[in-house]
């Protein structure tokens, strides 16, 4: 069996590269998370280089857990991720069921729908926050101003004017504020990732058992019960996969947060790590370890699921 040796050796470069890529940085993060390590300190210059003599034990973890930003960042991360998951799965199922049957122009609609997924995240965020959501110059601002103009005109009308003067003026919403910027991020990411969900659900719908469906129709099953008892169970596995893959991607959401809400209170975990990393490396590393733990909880489920189909 010596002729098998060389072929097997061919995977070594890939394995070694990934091993180095994973172990060295992660090991360093773990090490930094247990020492005092800052980039600038006039008072304690000895803390500015990593060294075992600056050992802090779990001090960095305590510091991070006690900081207000950390709790906010976790809350925000979860809020953003859960909202995106909920919206993309619901929209994805509806749209996939809608366009799965043939109709004139089905191919073109598919192409139109999938396009947002390929837009680079930085462009996505800049496009939405400026040209679409800006309260003055974006489409939102223009639409609100236009509506107010129309209302003003209606108020001048002889009889009905009295009715319209009861209506309020509309106020545009600024999506760069702390409370609203998470909504903006959710909107733009949902726009980008719904196509992904649609694509996967459609792929899965194509393997649905058509004979079973026809039998159900002959038995007089309503469209709803066909959907509820045949289609939805069939989509169970793809839904789980969409949820987990997106969870992993969105837990490390960065470009959108950076562009939309830089400097306000809307931070997620990766953003907070970046902020700590400007000076307090110990705290950044401890936060990083928390992020790894969070991602692993999701990853274990996903890996189990993927593993089952692996050697089929």
């Amino acid at each position: 069996m010596s002729d098998r040796k060389l072929p097997r050796l061919l995977q070594t470069p890939a394995v070694l590269l990934l091993l180095v890529w994973m172990l060295i940085p992660l090991g360093m993060t773990l090490y930094f998370s247990f020492i005092r390590y800052v980039l600038n300190s006039l008072r304690r210059p000895e803390w500015t280089s990593p060294s075992l003599s600056n050992w802090r034990g779990f001090g960095n973890y305590e510091f991070v857990l006690k900081s207000k930003d950390f709790v906010l960042a976790i809350q925000n991360s979860l809020f953003i991720v859960c909202s995106i998951l909920f919206l993309t799965v619901i929209l994805g199922i509806l749209i996939a069921v809608l366009i799965n049957k043939s109709f004139p122009g089905q191919g073109i609609v598919r192409v139109l729908l999938i396009s947002p997924f390929f837009v680079m995240p930085a462009v996505n965020a800049v496009l939405w926050i400026n040209m679409i959501l800006d309260p003055v110059l974006g489409l939102q601002g223009i639409a609100v101003a236009g509506t107010n103009d129309i209302l003003d005109g209606l108020r001048q009308m002889p009889v009905l004017g009295g009715f319209f003067s009861l209506w309020p003026e509309f106020e545009p919403i600024s999506f760069r504020a702390t409370q609203t910027s998470a909504i903006a991020v959710i909107m733009m990411v949902t726009w980008q990732w719904t196509p992904f969900a649609v694509l996967i659900f459609m792929t899965s719908l194509q393997s649905e058992d058509q004979q079973q469906k026809e039998a159900a129709v002959l038995d007089g099953a309503s469209t709803w019960s066909q959907f509820r008892f045949l289609t939805l169970p069939h989509l169970g596995r793809p839904i789980a996969i969409v949820v987990m893959i997106q969870a992993i991607f969105h837990l490390s959401l960065y470009a959108e947060i950076e562009i939309v809400s830089r400097g306000n209170g809307n931070k997620n975990l990766p953003y907070l790590i970046g902020e700590f990393a400007n000076n307090n490396i110990g705290a950044a590393s401890a936060t990083g370890i928390f992020a790894v733990i969070l991602a692993n909880i999701v990853a274990i489920f996903l890996l189990r699921m993927v593993g089952k189909t692996l050697m089929e």
Binding site: L18, W21, M22, I24, P25, L26, M28, T29, F32, I248, L251, S252, Y254, L269, P270, I273, G274, A277, I281, A284, S285, G288, I289, A291, V292, L294, A295, N296, V298, A299, L302, L303, V306
Partner: peptide, 14 residues
Amino acid sequence: LSTKMLPAAAVLYP
């Protein structure tokens, strides 16, 4: 596959 799930931000500073 599991290496893909390591959050990038966690190893930013290293």
